[in-house]
Every structure is written in C-alpha cells, then in structure tokens.
Amino acid sequence: MSFTPFLFFDGNCEEAIDFYAEILGADEVVKTSFAEAPPEAGMPPDARVMYSHIRIGDHMLMASDILPGQSYAPQASVHVTHYAKDAKDGRAKFARLAEGGEILMDYQETFFAYGFGTCKDRFGTHWMIMIAKEEE
C-alpha cells in the first residue's frame, strides 16, 4: 500500500504538471481536460485539467484544476517530498523548483541528509527535496 499526493490548481495545472514532469524526469504524463469528459458527466466544457498524473517508476503525483468558481488555496500545509538520486541531482531539482517561488530552507547538508531543502514553487506547491544519508 502507498500514498499518492493529489494537488489542486486554479487553471494552471497543465503548466505545473508539465513543469514537474520535466524536472523530476517523469516516465509517464497523463492529462485529461473537463471538456474531454463524457457529456453525461455534466462537466463544464472547459480546457482546465480534470485529471492528471506523472509517474516516476512506481510513484505517482496526481493533480487537477478546481472547477471554475470553486474557492482555492494552494497546498499551504503539505509538502511533497522527493528523494533525489544524489546530492548533485537534489541541488539541481531544488534550484529548478524554487525558480520564481520562495526558498524556505536552502538546499544544504544536514545531520540527517547529504542534501535537504524546502521551497514553495511558483504554483504554490511546497517541496522537500532530499538525499538521506542512509539512501546514498
């Protein structure tokens, strides 16, 4: 059994999921818009993303846009953790995710990790990028 994060966006899910797929090296990217839903589903004929995911090996990150008119707050109290291949890979991914966002804790070696940092990306998603000392 596993847990899969499901992120919500307000009209920029496609941009965000493509950004994450590029940075994290996704093996698979799936996107379906509300307009692609069957008519009987009653979804708005909107280009917003109804469902998407990226897959990296056995792991997935799922995402969707909210329906137009729904209230929205970015993922403020949740951080998505990504374990990098090594400290150099972690530093590169962290730097890309932090572009246009906010660094909360600069990527650095800690007592528990060869590399660890937290940031909020330009889409409002919080990330923890790390390479734990027992992983390398």
Rank of each mutant, 00 (worst) to 15 (best):
E134V: 12
I129T: 03
A92R: 09
H59F: 10
M62W: 02
S52G: 13
E134D: 10
A76H: 12
K85L: 14
F6S: 10
L61H: 05
M130F: 02
D18P: 00
R55Q: 14
D18H: 13
D18E: 13
P74T: 05
P45D: 12
S33V: 11
H53R: 09
A35V: 10
K85W: 02
A87I: 05
G11V: 05
A63K: 10
E109Q: 11
A47K: 13
A73K: 15
L61D: 06
T125Q: 09
A47D: 15
L24E: 01
G69F: 07
T32R: 13
V80P: 07
F8G: 04
D106Q: 04
R48N: 14
F111K: 00
I54P: 06
F9A: 04
A95N: 08
E40V: 12
L61Y: 03
R55W: 01
E102P: 04
A26Y: 07
A76F: 15
A63G: 07
G57R: 09
S64M: 14
D46M: 04
G42H: 09
G124M: 10
P39D: 15
A16C: 11
Y51L: 12
S64K: 12
K31V: 15
H53L: 14
F116C: 07
I66E: 09
S64F: 04
M43T: 02
W127F: 12
D46W: 01
T81F: 11
Y72L: 07
F9R: 06
I17V: 15
A95I: 01
S71H: 09
W127S: 07
P38I: 10
E135C: 09
M43R: 05
G90N: 02
A37P: 00
A76P: 01
I66F: 00
S33N: 08
L24W: 02
F116G: 08
D58G: 10
A41K: 13
G90P: 05
E134M: 15
A95M: 03
N12P: 06
I56D: 09
A92Q: 11
A92M: 03
T110Q: 11
C13S: 10
K85T: 13
V29C: 11
T81L: 11
P68G: 09
L97F: 02
P45W: 03
Y107N: 05
Y72K: 09
V30R: 13
S52H: 04
Y107G: 06
F34V: 11
P5H: 11
K120E: 08
L97A: 02
M43G: 04
G11Q: 12
A73L: 14
V80A: 02
H59K: 14
